[in-house]
Nucleic acid binder design. Structure first.
Lengths: 339, 339
DNA sequence: CTTGGCACTCGCAACCCCCGAGTGCCAGAA
DNA sequence: TTCTGGCACTCGGGGGTTGCGAGTGCCAAG
């Protein structure tokens, strides 16, 4: 028996099942694929594939359906990544180039990805572990309060109001100006993760009389840095989960719940990050560590220095197309964010 | 026949139907409510209520179900707003007080509201039509580029990078400083909507030699102001849509789609805003102007100067409880944002 | 206006039965 | 050894039928 032909049969089963969402039988296979052998032979092959755990029969007298392992085999060895058409690539690029700011880039990206794949798109906010401080601004806002604004090189901004316990109205402008200058000299251009330590060092240089103000500002900055390091995630296309003919018989609620657990999605994208940039990672069904996503497949890639994005859909998905879309979108987002 | 008793019957039907989600018959009503009359009398009343379009029978030999008009009558005349318990109020307040910034307030609020009501919570970002400019910061960021940061009194921040077409590296610090000072004198404390006109006037005062730089900055600011006026909306609890025993037989997808159309939600909250602050508005089923929400009821209230928040759920919802939760959350958010 | 009684209506669940797609296996051919 | 045609078998699902019971509308009497 030809090992090779068996894999052809598996590929044909996956393709047909993805197309029709109905279990595929030996006869139906012969009609749509020219395998050059008879139905009986195909049946033997199918029996072998079932023995290997790659396909399964939902009930005695129905066709076969790929198992998670079957999809895995398909993705790893049987399918290329179907490249997108020139026109699609251009459309993606145009759409993303029209974004006006970071929020807009993220928003457009998830919507684009969900409409390309007809699935739920997930995107991690540009990761900031490798981000640097671009500028820190201190703005007195009346009374004893001071607004601390942190601007990160990716364009994100975080602000905090601190009460410095001393009236800044008159005569203290210089204190604030000095402090602004010191903080910027210390932190500008530095990695977010390195800044807290540097600031602590810089505190030494402050006139002891103003040490309390400086301490309050530094504390607010540390808080803001913490917030920036805390990752966020954005979704689009959850309505696709309820599409007619969708899978997720009963578990739709579980999937929605899992998607609301942004922490889960972040961990997932983190753990799936591949060594190779530009590569696409796929997690199929029960391979997935999170219970709510056991009936789904997740296709992710990375963008920029350390961001993740991808889609969540039924295990019965068009992997070549989805992987191509995820890869292409990740690629274009990377180039957009690079500028 | 007593008009009064008929309304009692309607109320009992709504309450039972909300509890059991099954059509309620005359006998079942007698068991759970002491109406002091016989089943036959109740049947006569039910026939009259059906005649009036307040209830309907899904099929000949089943109990009755309230129509949209029936729920409307219930909400307007038959149910109070069940006040929350002291403990619940304290819990709400504690939770919201723990928020660290505006994003966090919004995030906590929607999650809180969705878990209180077990429905989808919707919250408009604090509306900025009445917001004012707190401060504008100009930061040269190398080469010919300048970052313009707009800080609004609600704490939101928007930034833009503009290319001023002239190298700012050396000797031009003063130009930037002057411009910063001018812009702040002009815009600080002014309503966002008034600022563009004021800035155009201020342009006159700029040295013609630097007019081009000023124009670029003003243009970026106008863009940022536009963005701030553009309203956003945040959701939580979409998983509740798929709860077991949920309604939305087939239309779940439509509802999810409608929820992704944030513009629709914003319009809805805008149109439902009541004259009376603190009041709760309810839009029931087909009263709703948006097709995707024809099978849902929307309960909203306003917070702060002009924000909206609320929940979207099945028409068969516990109106007294939901209205109480929405009202209470809106109230506490208002007080939190006031500080 | 209310009440008890009674005939009637239908949705629904259970049941049955049949059909056909699809299988596994076997004996013979290549 | 591998492939093929044939054949008996399995079983899920669709369609028709039936019985049950909840619930109704109406009526005549209180």
């Amino acid at each position: 028996m030809s090992e090779d032909r068996r894999l052809h049969v598996l590929r044909a089963i996956v393709q047909d099942y993805v197309r029709t969402s109905e279990p595929v039988g030996s006869k139906a296979l012969l009609e749509r694929h020219s395998l050059g052998v008879s139905a009986a032979t195909v049946r033997n092959d199918m029996a072998a594939l079932e023995e290997d755990g790659l396909i399964t029969a939902p009930h005695t007298s129905a066709g076969r359906v790929p198992t998670d392992a079957g999809y895995r085999m398909f993705v790893d060895r049987l399918s290329g990544i179907k490249p997108l058409s020139k026109a699609e690539k251009v459309a993606i690029q145009r759409l993303l180039e029209g974004a006006v700011d970071l929020d807009d880039v993220v928003g457009r990206t998830v919507r684009l990805l969900s409409s390309l794949t007809h699935q739920v798109a997930v995107m991690q906010y540009p990761s900031l572990t490798r981000s640097t401080v671009r500028h820190v601004e201190l703005v007195p806002i009346g009374g004893t309060r001071l607004m601390v604004v942190l601007i990160v090189n990716t364009g994100r901004v975080e602000q905090r109001v601190v009460d410095v316990g001393r009236d800044l109205a008159a005569g203290h402008e210089q204190v604030v100006a000095d402090l602004r200058s010191l903080v910027n000299r210390t932190a500008a251009g530095q990695a977010l993760t390195a800044v807290p330590a540097l600031l602590q060092g810089a505190l030494e240089q402050v006139d002891p009389a103003d040490r309390d103000i400086a301490r309050a500002v530094v504390s607010a900055l540390e808080d803001a840095l913490e917030e920036q390091t805390e990752e966020r995630v954005v979704l689009a296309g959850t309505a696709n989960l309820a599409r007619v003919g969708s899978d997720f018989p009963t578990s739709l609620g579980e999937v929605l719940e899992a998607l609301e657990e942004h922490v889960v999605l972040l961990k997932l994208m983190g753990s799936m990050a591949t060594l190779d940039d530009e590569a696409v990672a796929v997690s199929i069904g029960a391979e997935n560590p999170y219970a709510g996503l056991r009936t789904t497949s997740v296709v992710t890639s990375t963008y920029g220095p350390a961001g993740g994005l991808g889609v969540v859909g039924p295990t019965r998905m068009d992997y070549p197309m989805t992987m191509a879309a995820v890869r292409a979108v990740a690629h274009y987002v990377s180039t957009i964010l690079d500028t």
